[in-house]
Every structure is written in structure tokens, then in C-alpha cells.
Amino acid sequence: MTLASIPLHTPVVIVCIDGDRQYRRRLMELGFLPGVSVQVLGIAPFGDPLDIEIRGCRFSLRSAEAACVHVRAVSAEASAELAAK
């Protein structure tokens, strides 16, 4: 599961980030680190980029890069809910 594939307004937890090193470094420097809660608030017109909230802060990432942020559900129940969606 990645940040690009989860439904809107659903908090999830970062597992790891892969992809281009420099971009990954930037994301981590902004606090995108394993264990941190993150959610997608919206998607721009034409399907890209995404509007993401993390640590009470909002960032815009394109879906190609958001797909490098691997996430998991907050809890077991949330996981079942996510699967249902």
C-alpha cells in the first residue's frame, strides 16, 4: 500500500520510502519518517498532484512520487476498513 493508492481522509502510518535518493532525503527531512501518521486530503484537477497532511503540515506531491511512500493502516480495524474500501 502506498500514499498514492489510499482513499482520501484516511490516516495511515509510513512504513518506508524508496525511490530517487535526493527526493527521498527531502521527504525525510520534512519529517516523512517510519511510524509517522499521514493522510491524503485531496487531489488536484486532472488527477495530480496530491494534497497531503503530515505533522500538522500540508504538502503537495505528485502521485508518481507518492507511490514511493509505503504506508500501513493505523490499526487492525483500520486495516480491515481500508481493505473494504
Partner: peptide
């Protein structure tokens, strides 16, 4: 290619 990383400030 520099990917987008744009803060949406309050």
C-alpha cells in the same frame, strides 16, 4: 528532473 515538493502553507 526534480519532483514536486510543494508546501501548502496555512
Amino acid at each position: 528532473k526534480v519532483p514536486l515538493l510543494l508546501e501548502l502553507p496555512p
